[in-house]
Amino acid sequence: MKKTPFFPFLFLFILIGSIPAFSQIKAVTENGDTIYVYNDGTWSYELREFSGQQGMMDFLNEPIDVETLSSSFTTPSTSKDKVKNARDQFQILFNSEEWRRVPPATLNDEAEFAFEAKFSDVWSVVISEETPIEKETLFKIARKTMEDNTGAKPEIISLTQFKVNDQDILRGVMRASFSGITFVFDTYYFSDERGSVQFTTWSSEAVWKKNEEKIQDLLKGFEVIGVE
C-alpha cells in the first residue's frame, strides 16, 4: 500500500498558482498586445499607478535560451482516459493504470486537474488562465515564483519547444532544492487566444530520472480542442 506522500504538501506553496502572483505583470499576448495583469485578477492595456513597484518585473526581460526541436509527438495509445477543460480549450488523456486523479485543491488551490502516479512519487497539476500569456513569459513567472519562495533561483535543466498533437509546446525542466531535497519540475506551457495553460509535474530528482518516460507520456496527453 502506498504511503501518504509529503512532497505535495511540502511544495504546495512553491508551485505557481494564478498568473497574478505579483502586484502587476507586464506581458505580451499571442496577438502582440502588451497588457498588465494585476493581483485582483483584472488586466488592462495601460499601467495603473503602484508605489514602490518599479523594477519588480525586470526578471521578465531576462534572456532565456529556447532550443527548437523538429520533433513532433502525439498522445500515447495507452492513454485512454480523459478529462476536459471547463472552457473547452483542451483535454488531458492519461493512462489510469499508471495515474490516478486526485482532488485538485489537495495539491494546488488554483489547479483545474491533478494527478498522482500510482507506483512512484510523482505528482501533477494543470492550471489554466483565461488571459493569453506567451509561453516564455509563463516560464519566467514560474521560475521567479520558485525563486521567491525558496530563496534561490532554480536551475534550468532544459528549455525546448516542439509540437505535441500539432500544437507548439514549451517544455521547461527546472531543478530546485528545499530542506536538503532536490526536486525537478517538468512542465508543458501552452497559450492561444483562449488562455494559457501550465501542465506541471514534480518529484525528487532521483525519481524524475527513473520515471522521465512515464512523466512524458502523461504530459503528451495534452490535446488542444476546438481548433479547426
Rank of each mutant, 00 (worst) to 15 (best):
E193R: 13
I25N: 08
K118H: 04
T150A: 10
E30R: 13
S179V: 10
S196L: 07
N31P: 00
T160Q: 15
I181E: 12
F7N: 08
T201S: 14
P20E: 08
N31I: 02
V173R: 14
E30K: 15
P76L: 08
A206L: 12
S72W: 01
P8W: 06
E147W: 06
P8R: 07
E205K: 13
F199N: 01
E223R: 15
T75L: 11
V173N: 07
E130D: 14
F73Q: 15
V28L: 13
S203R: 07
K80H: 03
S124A: 12
Y45M: 09
G32E: 02
G195A: 06
K163C: 01
A152D: 10
L47F: 00
E97P: 01
E129M: 08
P104H: 01
I64M: 09
E147V: 00
P154Q: 08
T68V: 15
K2F: 04
R101W: 03
K214A: 12
Q167Y: 01
L10C: 03
D217C: 02
F6H: 08
A152G: 00
T42R: 14
Y45C: 06
D217S: 10
M174P: 00
R48F: 02
Q54D: 15
K153R: 13
F190P: 01
F199Y: 14
T78W: 06
D81Q: 12
L60P: 08
D33C: 00
K26W: 00
F185K: 09
L218I: 03
Q216I: 07
E212A: 07
N149C: 00
E136L: 08
F162M: 15
E147Y: 07
F7W: 10
L138A: 03
W202S: 05
V125F: 00
L15E: 13
Q89H: 12
G55A: 13
E116S: 10
D81A: 14
T145H: 14
I25Y: 06
I14K: 14
I169N: 03
T160S: 12
S120C: 13
V66K: 08
K209R: 14
K140W: 03
N108E: 05
A176Y: 03
F22N: 05
S120N: 10
A206G: 07
V122L: 10
V197P: 06
K214I: 14
N61Y: 05
S177Y: 04
E155C: 05
Q161A: 14
V184A: 03
D65Y: 11
S124D: 00
S77K: 10
F90S: 07
I141W: 06
L218K: 01
R171T: 04
L93A: 11
V207N: 01
F185S: 12
A27M: 09
F113P: 08
E46R: 09
N149E: 09
P8Q: 08
